[in-house]
């Protein structure tokens, strides 16, 4: 009972799937952000509610969790989010979806046989906004250095290579190149590479 209270009050999403991807547990955090009650999703395949999850990468790593006992990490930097929830804050204008860092791992029965996989969902939207603001400021600064010939373009690029692949659409927006798809942070890398190469060649 205490455990149930904890699971329902922690500020983290928790989903438990069986080997057939059917939802066995869906904590209150998930219900609140998805608008789907546990009773509604219980026993139903997660793909019926979230068909985009049925992709090779997720299926492969789900298999690794169930067959091998692995853990898999869904980094915000690559996925943006796993579950398309609205951001918690009412004052986030440019982001349509809560940014998430998720982990998938095995759950065993009393015989230590893996029966389920859990997915934990952490809201990292604020950290993401902070990071993109920092990245944006850095980009602006480096551009100025390069324009004034205070720094070779290659050096600026190497700094950006090191730090910026992790950043997102806001950098693009502030530098007047609208993202191709605001919801798919997977494409950010492409756009960033474009910008970096432009900086390196001194066109900006």
């Amino acid at each position: 009972m205490i455990l149930n209270q904890i699971l329902d009050t922690i500020d983290i999403g928790l989903v438990i799937l069986d080997k057939d991807f059917k939802v066995r547990y869906w904590n209150r955090w998930m219900a609140m952000h998805s608008g789907i009650a546990f009773q509604e999703i219980k026993g139903v395949s997660i793909f019926e509610f979230y068909p985009h999850l049925k992709n090779k990468k997720l299926l492969r790593n789900f298999k690794a969790v169930i067959n091998l006992g692995n853990h898999y990490f869904f980094p915000q930097k690559l996925y943006g989010y796993l579950f398309p929830f609205r951001p918690e804050s009412n004052f986030v204008k440019d982001i349509n979806h809560m940014q998430q860092s998720c982990t998938m791992g095995p759950l065993r029965d009393d015989e230590k046989v893996i029966q389920y996989a859990y997915i934990s969902v952490k809201d990292v939207t604020e950290a993401y906004i902070y990071e993109t603001n920092l990245a944006s400021a850095l980009l602006t600064l480096l551009e100025k250095y390069v324009e004034k010939n205070d720094m070779p373009a290659e050096e600026a690029q190497s700094i950006l290579d090191e730090l910026l692949p992790t950043s997102g659409g806001e950098v693009m927006a502030k530098h007047s190149k609208p993202p191709k798809d605001k919801d798919t942070h997977a494409v950010i890398g492409d756009q960033l590479v474009d910008i970096l190469s432009e900086i390196a060649s001194g066109n900006r």
Binding site: K57, V187, G189
Partner: peptide, 14 residues
């Protein structure tokens, strides 16, 4: 052969 994400091989994130 993955169906996501649509990025090229040189992409540092990928």
């Amino acid at each position: 052969d993955d169906d996501l994400p649509p990025m090229d091989e040189e992409n540092p994130l990928l």
